[in-house]
Computed example of a mutant assay.
Amino acid sequence: MECSEPGCERPAAVRLCIPWDENRDVCTAHARGLAQTDGIVPRPLEDADSEWP
């Protein structure tokens, strides 16, 4: 599964639980920035590929 952010082809590794919007599955790079927003809870995906550089 790929990151849900537009233009990103990295594998999704984190599910962002967003109370005011749909949850998103994103790569670790996008999760780092987006998870700093108050109210967003990052949760690692069980089947995430940890081999991605």
Rank of each mutant, 00 (worst) to 15 (best):
M1L: 13
E2V: 09
C3W: 07
S4G: 15
E5P: 01
E5I: 11
E5N: 08
E5R: 08
E5V: 14
P6R: 03
G7V: 00
G7W: 09
C8T: 01
C8D: 06
C8W: 03
C8G: 05
C8K: 05
E9W: 10
E9F: 07
R10T: 02
R10W: 07
R10A: 15
R10F: 13
P11N: 08
A12F: 11
A13H: 00
A13I: 00
A13Q: 14
V14Y: 02
V14M: 10
V14H: 04
R15V: 09
L16G: 02
L16M: 07
L16T: 03
C17Q: 13
C17R: 12
C17V: 11
C17A: 03
I18L: 13
I18R: 14
P19G: 06
W20T: 13
D21R: 15
N23M: 02
N23W: 06
N23R: 02
N23A: 11
R24K: 15
R24P: 08
D25Q: 07
D25Y: 07
V26C: 10
V26Y: 10
C27N: 07
T28I: 14
A29S: 08
A29G: 00
H30V: 04
H30C: 14
A31Y: 01
A31W: 04
A31R: 01
G33C: 12
L34Y: 14
L34W: 14
L34K: 12
A35V: 01
A35T: 10
Q36T: 06
I40R: 08
I40P: 03
V41E: 14
V41Q: 11
P42L: 04
P42G: 02
P42C: 02
P42D: 05
R43Y: 02
R43I: 03
R43D: 04
R43L: 10
P44W: 09
P44A: 01
L45K: 04
E46H: 06
E46S: 10
E46A: 13
E46I: 05
D47L: 07
D47T: 02
D49K: 12
D49N: 14
S50P: 15
S50I: 12
E51T: 13
W52F: 10
W52A: 09
